[in-house]
Design a protein around this nucleic acid. Sequence first.
DNA 1: CACCAGGCAAGTA
DNA 2: TACTTGCATGGT
Length: 217
Amino acid sequence: MKKQQHLLNFYQTMSSRLGPSNWWPGESPFEISVGAILTQNTNWKNVEQAILNLKSRNLLDPEKMFFMNDEQLAQLIRPAGYFRIKTTRLKNFLLFLYNECGFNFSILEKMDLEKLRTKLLEVKGIGPETADSIILYALNKPSFVVDAYTQRILNRHGIIHEDADYNEIKELFTSCLPEDVTLYNEYHALLVRVGKSWCRKKTPVCNQCPLEIYFEN
DNA sequence: CACCAGGCAAGTA
DNA sequence: TACTTGCATGGT
């Protein structure tokens, strides 16, 4: 079967079994962007606590965080792990925001997608997944997000080779799917939900994974 | 105890 | 260029 058909069937199977995801959890483009940086190689539960630490003090605000002392910010985001490096990464991103749009996300939304992505990738601490997460989930522009779960799930179903890199996997999705923000949003959300439940790192197969069930049919 | 979590950059050869 | 290591908390 063609890869495109597989990817479309994956989506149908996950969507019908799991229902809508309503992603990304977060109340504003800024909160979503902060979450995208904090969740790098980190359990989302830990990120929630870090964001709550900021929110409860009314400090989840780009200007306040920009001028916040590094040590204070580090202590607030500590539950998210890698807290020193992530403090620097957040500050780098905040400087980017100040320079590009004066902390006004609606200006970012008007930028050309590829130009924006290139500029985000120039920020130290923002790699391809974080950039795409910000573009897709905070700015609602169509840039497919690839993560470790995506790679693992596709690999175990023989859709991609073991060492396929980020751009190769991203290109597979963008070449097979219509360029649609809602579809990109929901597809990645579903893959993460499936991955969290069924597709651990050292488990050779995705036990009871909906996609396995799809393959049995 | 080992292993993992919605990565990324810097160091080494 | 290709591989390795550091970053760190909190849950199973």
